[in-house]
Design a protein around this nucleic acid. Structure first.
Length: 506
RNA sequence: GGUCGGUUGGCCGAGUGGCUAGGCAGAGGUCUGCAAAACCUCGUACAGCAGUUCGAAUCUGCUACCGACCUCCA
């Protein structure tokens, strides 16, 4: 089957564009990962799930994908002032542990929760602290190209110099005047020539525990530098897609573009680096929107975030119940990634019901037996994958793909009840579509409810059902209802159908 | 203040210049001892005002409200 062409919305051009990779057949994807100084929350889940679907979709479209998602374990400051403390170092100081202990602990936590939500591990997951040499080299090149200056052991990017020949603000749609008028006057910026200049290298203060030697001082790299350095190292100076949250658009991604462009102009034989050919950096920039709570962004700084652990255990005053990891994933996928998604218990509960109905139909589908006689289908199964793939290839419209799958549920259930028939060919296509779209691309899976004691449970419940059927045959409704109620109390729901009684674990 | 985006039925949430999104909740029905599940049917919503058009919720303008970024944030 011919795959529909992939179009994605490019923040750089503010329009949907046909995806054309730098190297045909290959796709390079870089996504800003977490700063590992706190437990992952719902906000972290959105880009992880969004770009996980992109990763899966690209693979389904037969690209060889290299997906790089970094771990920020150094350089991310509390604020832009010189007094700003490194997030990791601060946490380490407060908890009196090694910075690397903090980083490792929260990296593991991040992995644990993302795994549970069906987020595939990226191809490469580089740490900022493991690429200090690359970052120092990048600073050298930017200095060499004349777009940075040293002050007091720190190195700053010269925004005005850069803006004279380039559009600083090309991604965020700003110009230097906007940035200038909006930028705050912060204390301790004496070293900077211009308020909008940003740090490439910071000299470490005596109490700063994370530090590396450099030509300028013993210090640490600026936050924006890591993504430039690591994306270039693993994907090349020119690569396909750069993703991240919308809140990183400015300044983080804008600075990345400036750094890449500036470094590419360094052609001085003195430093030995060759000028880059063509425009550096990502060709397509993709940004997921924020998750909101009561209409406001859910974020660390606002203190209104709910951690994923709280979601999975129900342990938050904002939650009326626990939600399984797959329900969270489904909740995210039910909205388009560029829309804000508003959190509420009502919305989560609706998502949970919908998710369960979809999963149940998927499981029922696996048990359906084909009929020898071929009857006409209410909908053509020949097109089902295409019907899902077309919206997915149109800037990853996951809600429409899900709607398409939902439209098959009544058909599946009708067949399962024996009220309609399906030929082997139709059934195979239907199963394949659910497996491919729902499983492989959207990454949803039934939440394993029962453990390994299914045979035992089957036997016990079967026995109870037999007893109840005997009571029913004797029209002893009181007895039959007692059995049903007792089972219900254990979380086992009985359903009387035409072909006898079936049951399921809630 | 600057830049950008949003306002869709009870809730969440897609989308398009004219043709049913979907989910959840709700109503009626089929089935059933009852119930649940399942299936069938039902809501004609697109902030307000004006304009373009044969026709706009979809395009344009204005107004109102909300939000994001401009400082760390996914």
């Amino acid at each position: 089957m011919a795959q529909p062409p992939l179009h994605i919305y490019n923040t750089l051009t503010r329009q949907k564009e046909l995806f054309e990779p730098v190297t045909p057949g290959f796709a390079g994807l870089y996504v800003c990962g977490p700063t590992v100084y706190g437990d992952p929350h719902l906000g972290h889940a959105r880009p992880a799930v969004t770009f996980d679907v992109l990763f899966r979709l690209l693979k389904h479209l037969d690209y060889r994908v290299r997906y790089v998602r970094n771990i920020t374990d150094v350089g991310h400051l509390e604020n832009d002032a010189d007094a700003g403390e490194d997030k990791i170092a601060k946490k380490a100081r407060l908890e009196q542990v090694e910075p690397m202990e903090v980083a490792d602990y929260y990296t593991h936590r991040y992995h644990e929760f993302m795994d549970r939500m069906g987020v595939l591990r990226p191809s490469i997951e580089p740490h900022a602290s493991g690429h200090i040499i690359e970052q120092i080299e990048l600073v050298k090149r930017i200095l060499c190209a004349g777009y940075a200056y040293e002050a007091g052991g720190s190195v700053y990017f010269d925004v005005r110099k850069y803006a004279a020949g380039h559009h600083y603000g090309t991604l965020s749609g700003r110009n230097l005047d906007d940035i200038q008028s909006g930028s705050r006057e912060l204390d301790g910026q004496d070293e900077k020539c211009f308020p909008a200049d940003f740090a490439l290298w910071k000299k470490a203060s005596p109490e700063h525990i994370m530090r590396w030697p450099s030509p300028w001082s013993t210090g640490f790299p600026g936050w924006h530098l890591e993504c430039s350095a690591m994306s270039a190292k693993y994907l090349g100076e020119r690569f396909d897609i750069h993703g991240g949250g919308m809140d990183l658009l400015f300044p983080h991604h804008e600075c990345e573009i400036a750094q890449n462009t500036a470094a590419a102009e360094c052609g001085s034989p003195d430093c030995g680096c060759a000028p880059a050919a063509g425009k550096p950096g990502a060709r397509y920039w993709m940004h997921n929107n924020m998750i909101t709570i009561n209409g406001q962004k859910m974020g660390k700084s606002l203190g209104n975030f709910i951690t994923l652990e709280e979601f999975f255990t129900g342990g938050s005053p904002l939650l009326t119940q626990a939600y399984s990891p797959m329900v969270i994933r489904f909740f995210i996928l039910q909205a388009h990634y560029r829309s804000t998604l508003d959190f509420s218990n009502e919305a989560l509960q609706a998502a949970e019901k919908g998710y369960e109905r979809l999963m149940k139909a998927w499981q029922v589908l696996g048990k359906i037996q084909p009929s020898a006689m071929s009857e006409g289908m209410a909908k053509p199964t020949e097109k089902i994958v295409e019907e899902c793939l077309v919206p997915l290839c149109d800037d990853m419209n996951t809600p429409v793909a899900l709607a398409e799958l939902f439209s098959w549920i009544p058909i599946i259930n009708t067949i399962a009840e024996g009220k309609a028939k399906i030929s082997a060919a139709h059934l195979d296509r239907l199963k394949a579509a659910f497996d491919t779209v729902l499983g492989d691309i959207l990454g949803l899976a039934p939440q394993s409810a029962a453990g390994n004691d299914t045979a035992l449970i089957d036997g016990l419940v079967g026995m109870a059902v037999e007893q109840r059927n005997a009571a029913k045959a004797a029209k002893d409704w009181a007895a039959s209802d007692v059995i049903r109620d007792r089972l219900a109390a254990l979380g086992i729901k009985l359903k009387d159908g035409k072909e006898g009684t079936s049951w399921e674990i809630e």
